[in-house]
Design a protein around this nucleic acid. Structure first.
Lengths: 400, 400
DNA sequence: TCCGTTTGTTTGGATTGAAAACAAACATAT
DNA sequence: ATATGTTTGTTTTCAATCCAAACAAACGGA
């Protein structure tokens, strides 16, 4: 197969993309938008409607008056099915369901014992949770895909190479999941930080952005890099370990991490250790933030030091990537609100004059971010050309 | 347009790609390789032959005996034309011509006065050089494209945003070049480090490599990042300033760069300054290298320090990108040969155990690297799908 | 010399999108 | 109320492409 279906596939995907981005659109507008004739657009809309992906929508609101015959509008059929995102977090399982229009239609959390987290029982719990989540939906929905996310390095086959927090190594999680789910179900697996980044990015639909960086500050510091809408995975899936960037000789705290690394300066333990160094005392970040808000001296000094190294790290990443935006997330990120100006000043100090400075902002997503992101990745795939259908080359190729 | 020509275009490009990679191949093998029928493959080969891109090659050597009727082989027509790469370097203009099989068929260097390098006169000199280079070719060749490279930040429109070495700012170099060249000529412009990386990468034809990093060590330190065969440019074209990564508080030399930056530790001036610090004396890198080779104490100490920070930088980049390979180039890179083990030990020290370590190797390309890379980019484009032909959407789109 | 194998070409069929013509639905002017 | 102009969606016709199958050609080996 290559010719008839290939172009058809491309055009169907493009039509879906236009409908998704515009929400409600007439056949004529689809044709105009994509440079097709109206007849072709109609034909594709008919196919997609028959398949159940599109529905007519002639609600009478905002008919956007104009001369000529009004169009008949179509939109995505949000009842076509759902995409499931399932995040294995630190002792917590988060499952969300996204409908065809990428809206969260259901969500569920449950806990598990981190000390006793063998993959098989987690998978069992996960499948149970997904099933009950589906049942809880108001309408009957077909599951169109499921994406697993976890705090660890995941290769392209869906094997978790290592997840220290869960105590897993070389765990073919996707294979195991495949065996207990319907055969034809679309499955994927992704690192949680990468998924978080996708969740942040997917809503904005900002096509002018080429490069974005996401930094997650918790006990450790993780990250994700998006280039032209694609996540950077690196050779084996290890890319994005932004917390391991080395910024100095010795960090504020020496844990099971690399000496002088980004996270040893700006992670949670680093903040609390530095606070103690300056004579303060806090058992968690919220306490520390309160102290800083009431202008406590030790807390402010700590913030100054934190800003210094956050600025250094951001500047380093800016030199490497020239990103349009750096998004901070995770429980420690909110400290940025307390010292924006200091951070920006430090960023500037560590860059040459005239180097473009990225926008820095805080993520608005909560702990369900990775699960939403995983589901978003499947949704995005629905709107993307499946290259295998087009570039499929024979496996049995003889090398002349 | 979309359907007839789109698939045809894709398949033509794929055929060209197969022919390029295999050198000499029969229609039947093309069909097998691409999952097409022999009739389709024949049809496409006929089109491309008529256009002059392919020629039959029934030279009698290695007919690779086997049962059945032998095939009729085709190869790229190396006389179809040439791609020109023109590098504006530090006081030196390098022009190369690549034939259709990506071999360098001509090359030329000329100098210019760096202090008096206004764009107009450089362009004049460049056009003159290109024309005489074309004339010098044994056969008559059509120029199929020209890529300019320069040591500076170049945006996607072909404007040099800044090139401190040349003293240029906001220079629409491609527009100016366009005016003095035939209208239909394919033009491009690229940063010299990026082009160098393309030159290194393009020959290997290694499809299993996802991520590679190139570091160029000269007075300053530049770099380029390749992901899935694509260069990372960042939002405005500034990406890849690897020399500005911050690795410590204070470098070995404080120049017009960022304090504690990668290049302030491992660039040429940093090496020489550190050598003086240890009591040695050398006016250039070759002298220093000689001293190191004869095991001079101060030189060895300097190398130890250099290894320390090169290892730190490589480790940082490895944490971020998880590259398969890091290639070192430029006049200072050869120091790596004198302290490979030290560098690798330092890399390992700055990564968590079990993190995959990239291969580190020296580039074999000389000063004509950027020019070759620029021309290679055009060649690569010939073998790539032109997305505009497929995804072309109407400019006059009305937003509903 | 015959047979099996592989190659390249030819022919017929199916799918697709473009172009053009047409009918339908609406706003506005008369 | 009627006519006119505009835009939409559909229908029809046509050209381009690839695939499948049949066929002729070229070679090695029995």
């Amino acid at each position: 197969m290559s010719m008839p279906s290939a172009v058809r596939h491309i055009n169907e995907v493009r039509v879906l993309d236009v409908v998704f981005r515009q929400g409600k659109v007439s056949r004529a507008n689809i044709a105009r938008e994509l440079g097709l004739t109206r007849s072709t657009a109609s034909s594709i809309v008919a196919s997609l409607t028959e398949e159940g992906l599109l529905v007519e929508d002639n609600s009478e609101d905002d008919k956007s008056a104009g001369t000529g015959r009004p169009g008949t509008f179509v939109r995505l059929n949000s009842n076509y099915g759902v995409f499931i995102g399932a995040d294995i977090g630190v002792g917590r399982l988060t499952v969300v369901a996204l409908d065809m229009e990428a809206r969260v239609v259901a969500q569920s959390q449950s806990n598990f014992d981190l000390a006793d987290a063998d993959p098989e029982s987690i998978i069992q719990q996960l499948v149970r949770t997904v099933k009950s989540l589906i049942k809880s939906l108001s309408q009957k929905h077909t599951v169109r895909g499921l994406c697993l996310t976890a705090p660890g390095v995941i290769d392209r086959t869906g094997t978790i190479l290592r997840a220290p927090i869960l105590g897993w190594r070389q765990e073919p999680i996707l294979d195991k999941l495949e065996k207990v789910l319907p055969e034809d179900l679309l499955l994927a697996a992704e690192n949680d930080a990468n998924a978080f980044a996708m969740a942040e990015m997917y809503r904005s639909k900002d096509e002018s952005t080429d490069t974005e960086i996401y930094i997650f500050l918790d006990a450790g510091v993780g990250g994700a890099i998006v280039n032209s809408g694609q996540l950077l995975h690196g050779q084996d899936g290890y890319a994005g370990e932004l917390g391991h960037i080395i910024l100095g000789d010795e960090g504020f705290v020496e844990l099971a991490t690399i000496s002088g690394s980004f996270e040893s300066f700006i992670g949670r333990e680093a903040v609390l250790a530095r606070y103690r160094f300056h004579g303060g005392s806090a058992s968690n970040i919220d306490e520390f933030a309160s102290a800083a808000r009431r202008q406590e001296r030790a807390a402010l000094s700590t913030l100054t030091d934190w800003s210094f190294y956050l600025g250094r790290g951001v500047a380093t990443l800016t030199s490497i990537f020239n990103p349009a935006r750096i998004v901070l997330g995770g429980p420690v990120a909110m400290l940025y609100d307390l010292c924006r100006d200091q951070v920006m000043a430090n960023v500037r100090q560590n860059l040459l004059d005239e180097h473009p400075i990225p926008e820095i902002r805080l993520s608005k997503l909560g702990p369900e971010g990775p699960a939403i992101g995983g589901a978003s990745m499947l949704h995005k795939r629905m709107l993307s050309v499946n290259e295998e259908l087009i570039y499929r080359r024979n496996r049995t190729s003889s090398g002349r």
